[in-house]
Design a protein around this nucleic acid. Structure first.
Length: 904
RNA sequence: GCCCGCGUGGCGGAAUUGGCAGACGCGCUAGAUUCAGGUUCUAGUGAGUAACAUCGUACAGGUUCAAGUCCUGUCGCGGGCACCA
């Protein structure tokens, strides 16, 4: 009943609006009144230190909000309100990641334009989010499918397209700084060279094609050979696709993880995905050919144990080196391997397959002739697509050698003599590793690696190398409901076509209107259906692929900074004010950090959104468009909320909890409180509706701390008679006559300040569950106070306000009215500080242990000396039976903590 | 298989540097209010005992005056990666 009233009030007052440098703060705005900025233009210098607190914006699905969404949103809202009260200038925005498959599939089925579906879903999401009382600045709302938004997504793509990665500076630079090789003189020669260096480039390589979805997918979107969305089969097939050169940034994406405050597990996931490994490339000459085969190995120290080589079936040299006798078998194997889907490949991973090419290579360290095989356990996309096989010390090579009866030679001695050397893959000591020019025998693995690397380099046979698992980002999709590429294909004199970026002045490039959203009959993307959109004068064609859903979410946190700017994605001033570090307000939390101060969301984006966004941000940083190398300084993952049966919530299990139902029954305040009281934010935890009941009771107790019992009882009776006019009755409820504007008793102040301390410290540490328990303890105590000091109650409401803002506002207003005082803004009233002096008592409880077991607890004055403590403990009544007849060997006194008597 | 994280009452979870295990809440038991149900209030609630004793933080060891916390091993659960040479 009281909740919509306050939501309307906040909206009318624009209570949570954040102001950009240069904007005028309205003269009545409570933020302006607090910070002396009312009615004045805010300058970056005059504005208080920023706090940018961000939620992962939702995809507005037709199903509406899930109880998982409000978990993170409540946490950030509590902190946003807390920081506002502490005097920070809080940026807390919300928006919609609205491109995506469901709206498009719905369009295919019904013909309804995805725009219509999307708008309806956004309306519903916004209603639900608003009803939870979150303090978003809605004036900065973004929608990735809005032309005013994706215009800048396209603009950023153009910046990427017009850039290359300079290996010397290790930075993205404009393509105009690209140096050309000496033999590259004409434009006809330079264009393909230039295009091969861009950060956005076209590739013909095999891609992850999902027939069911009718589109290609990025590596990050394929899980166990199936699509991340829907779980459909994915096959590899060569196609012409747009790629983004994220691999150029692999090293920086890895090392910069050390500069940001993310959980170890999340950093670890990114590290694993980037997959850096150090090793060496070694050249093997082919016996009887001029060709060389280059391999990558992390264990060059085992080179003497290489008894055969393996190429991936797709390796470019396979055709040349295969002998006539083996040709048929090799080609058959290649065909078979190419026809296998990713899924089959992983499922059958245990059984090794392969064929001998008939060729031999020479091991450069000992001159041995070793056979060259092809096998699909060697990946064409990693390293050089070829390996030297050391079956004695590599699990996969070992399996393969056993299956095909290839020689196994020990070259590493395990440190523990009992360990079998066959299949031993760890570090040890080199053995059997002597050749005409070199011996590694007796060297520990690490040294052996160094020695042989130096030797190889000095002979020009190899060099140290670093490899990454990370692949370039497949960036095009065959869909309608996505951003069209700002790219067109222009004809050349020889009849071929090349791509070119369209002019920035032509942005936004809108998608065409279509009646049918399916791909064309000949397998072209849906945009190809719009002939008059695709075909431009001069035989120029538009690109018909669209960008993946990730494009919009790669930079949305930047658009919030200046969401209505039509000249740029954000003004320089806004970007630099909100994204730069600054000084702290003493005693009021941490200093503003570079980038987003706190980002909260689920872990499902660990290697997708969070990697892509960091990548784009680094490009924008290199090009001078943003001022920090990393976008998200601190990141916290909320844990999953399970159904009450401890299983993942899903429609098929019937354990899904709908926030609307909870809200209807208990209200937003109780819902918010329960989401936070369940347990630590980052933990996985099951939903329990009885738990909601528990916090609902707590709010009821808070209410009864304040209101007059008699008028409350009358109110409840009146509601029972006619619930429809409940709010009329509610206004008649009076506050308790026990509330008086008097200073608190010492015990009352102690209770209050203990909870100020606990709530404040727990908010800093994001320990919401224990903060709530501290408030419960206070309310239980305050309920029994015969006289209730108004000041203490007001302060308590400030503590409660971030968690349950509606009830806090209501009681805050009534309390001030009750005292006949003006009502200050609860949002912008300075956060209370606790007085340590009020918490100190003059005595404390001293546990007395005998041999480590608790036997008695004494109350002793603070100033008791250690010697006195010892004497008191030895005399403790309940400890006596355990001391009788024993010798006291030692007494350990921990001042203010406990005493332990050791007897024997 | 590899890499992270986690195992505490009937349940969700508390426990600065090792220092009173089980805060707070749910549930349960008994009582009060009530015609009754609900609400609310009071008391109790790890096992065990008449009460003590004793046992108790996945299991088995270890370090320590003292271990949920530190060390070693085992088991279980969750997440990530998965033929990455």
């Amino acid at each position: 009943m009281i909740e919509p009233r306050w939501q309307d009030r906040w909206e009318a007052e624009q209570t949570f609006k954040a102001f950009n440098p240069g904007q005028v703060v309205p003269s009545t705005h409570p933020f302006g009144l607090r910070h002396g900025l009312a009615g004045q233009p805010a300058t970056a210098a005059a504005l208080p230190p920023k706090f940018y607190i961000l939620d992962m914006f939702p995809y507005p699905s037709g199903a509406g909000l899930h109880v998982g969404h409000p978990e993170g949103y409540t946490a950030t809202d509590i902190l946003a309100r807390f920081r506002r009260s502490q005097g920070r200038h809080v940026l807390h925005p919300m928006g919609w990641d609205a491109f995506g498959l469901p709206a498009e599939q719905y369009a295919i089925k019904t013909g309804q334009h995805p725009r219509v579906t999307t708008n309806a879903n956004i309306t519903n999401f916004k209603r639900q989010i608003r009803s939870l009382g979150f303090s978003y600045d809605w004036s900065r709302e973004v929608d990735t499918t809005d032309t005013g938004y994706f215009r800048w997504t396209q603009w950023i793509f153009l910046q990427i397209y017009h850039s290359w990665f300079n290996p010397v500076t290790q930075r993205a630079e404009h393509i105009s700084t690209l140096p050309y090789p000496a033999d590259c003189t004409t434009e006809a020669q330079r264009r393909p060279y230039r295009d091969s260096k861009r950060l956005a480039y076209v590739s013909e390589a095999p891609v992850n094609w999902c027939p069911e979805l009718g589109t290609v997918l990025a590596n990050e979107e394929v899980i166990d050979g199936k699509s991340e969305v829907g779980g459909f089969a994915v096959i590899r097939r060569p196609m012409r696709q747009w790629m983004l050169r994220i691999t150029a940034f692999a090293e920086r994406l890895l090392t910069d993880l050390d500069t940001i405050d993310w959980s170890d597990s999340l950093k670890e996931m990114q590290r694993n995905w980037i997959g850096r490994s150090e090793g060496a490339e070694v050249d093997f000459t082919l016996d009887g050919h001029g060709e060389r085969i280059r391999v990558f190995t992390t264990r060059p120290d085992t080179l003497f144990g290489a008894t055969y080589m393996v190429l991936s079936p797709e390796h470019r040299l396979v055709k040349q080196i295969t002998t006539d006798a083996q040709r048929e078998a090799v080609e058959k194997y290649q065909t078979w391997a190419a026809g296998r889907s990713d899924l089959e490949r992983t499922e059958l991973a245990k059984e090794k397959t392969g064929v001998w090419t008939g060729a031999f290579a020479i091991n450069p360290v000992n001159g041995q002739r070793i056979p060259v095989w092809i096998a699909d356990y060697v990946l064409s996309t990693y390293g050089t697509g070829a390996i030297m096989a050391v079956p004695a010390h590599d699990e996969r090579d070992f399996e393969f050698a056993r299956k095909f009866d290839l020689p196994i030679v020990q070259v590493v001695q395990p440190p523990d003599a009992k360990t079998d050397w066959q299949g031993f893959c760890d570090e040890g000591t080199a053995v059997n590793s002597s050749g005409p020019d070199l011996s590694l025998d007796g060297l520990p693995t690490l040294e052996a690696k160094r020695t042989i690397s130096t030797w190889l380099e000095s002979r020009g046979l190899g060099k140290k190398t670093v490899n990454f698992k990370l692949r370039d980002w497949l960036f095009s999709r065959q869909r309608y409901w996505g951003e069209p590429f700002p790219i067109q294909w222009e004809p050349a004199a020889d009849g071929s076509r090349h791509h070119a970026g369209i002019a920035e002045s032509e942005l936004p490039l809108l998608p065409p209107a279509l009646d049918d959203y399916k791909p064309t009959a000949d397998g072209q993307p849906p945009l190809a259906r719009a002939a008059d959109w695709v075909n431009l004068p001069g035989n120029v064609l538009r690109e018909t692929n669209t960008m993946p859903q990730w494009a919009g979410s790669c930079w949305y946190y930047l658009r919030y900074l200046d969401a209505r700017n039509g000249e740029a994605f954000a003004s320089k001033e806004a970007e630099s004010y909100w994204m730069s570090a600054a000084a702290a307000i003493p005693g009021n939390g941490p200093a503003p950090t570079p980038g987003v101060d706190l980002y909260v969301g689920g872990t499902e984006h660990a290697v997708l959104h969070l990697l892509y966004a960091r990548f784009w941000h680094k490009i924008l940083f290199d090009l001078g468009h943003v001022s920090t190398p990393e976008p998200f300084y601190k990141l916290v993952n909320q844990g999953l909320i399970l159904g009450s049966d401890g299983q993942k919530m899903s429609k098929s299990r019937g354990n899904v909890v709908n926030p609307d139902d909870v809200l209807q029954e208990y209200g937003a305040d109780a819902f918010r409180l329960y989401e936070m009281f369940m347990g630590p934010l980052s933990e996985t935890k099951p939903w329990n509706t009885q738990g909601v009941e528990g916090v609902y009771r707590f709010l009821g107790r808070v209410w009864r701390v304040f209101v007059d019992e008699k008028s409350e009882a009358e109110f409840e009776q009146a509601c029972a008679v006619d619930p429809s006019i409940g709010d009329q009755h509610l206004s008649k409820v009076k506050l308790s006559p026990a509330i008086a504007d008097v200073p608190g008793e010492p015990a009352q102040l102690k209770a209050l300040h203990a909870s100020i301390k606990k709530v404040t410290e727990d908010l800093e540490g994001m320990r919401f569950n224990t903060a709530i328990s501290a408030m419960m303890i206070f309310a239980n105590d305050a309920l029994n106070w015969p006289v209730k000091p108004a000041g203490a109650l007001a302060t308590f409401l400030q503590l409660l306000a971030p968690f349950s803002p509606h009830l806090a506002e209501e009681l805050w207003e009534r309390l001030h009215n009750h005292l006949g005082k003006p009502v200050p803004s609860l949002t912008y009233t300075p956060w209370p500080t606790f007085d340590p002096a009020l918490l100190v008592e003059d005595s404390y409880e001293l546990p007395v242990q005998v041999n480590g077991k608790l036997r008695d607890v004494l109350r002793v004055p603070n100033e008791t000396t250690n010697a006195q403590l010892e004497a008191l403990a030895l005399a403790a009544e309940k400890a006596q039976p355990f001391l009788a007849g024993k010798t006291v060997r030692k007494v350990i006194v921990v001042p203010k903590r406990m005493v332990n008597i050791v007897v024997g």
